[in-house]
Amino acid sequence: MANGNVTTGKAEDLLAEAARWRDEGHKVALATVVTTWGSSPRPVGSQLIVDDTLRLQGSVSGGCIEGAVVHEAQAIMEGAPPKLLEFGVSDEQAWDVGLACGGTVKVFVENVE
């Protein structure tokens, strides 16, 4: 199979990237999908990192809840306690941010010290 390389180990790359951003002096938050129910677009363990310049890498959904996650992440990297966020069809906010897939997803957001 030509060009059949399969990319794995993304989580490792993201954590290495988070460490690099901290070493550059940025504040960094890490978001991790901890549970999914129904047809969530990204599996448990998927991660997103964001820094204080709103540099983003990774994903916790197909793109529909990242905005809300980043909003919470900004407060958390400024010193707010870590937080478990829940998005789903029964949740008003999920409608707002448009979780397109009809699933539920819980995302844990923490500061990278």
Partner: peptide, 14 residues
Amino acid sequence: MKREILDRLQKARA
């Protein structure tokens, strides 16, 4: 996540 844990995690993965 404490930096100490992040660094040890990366070492274990490597």
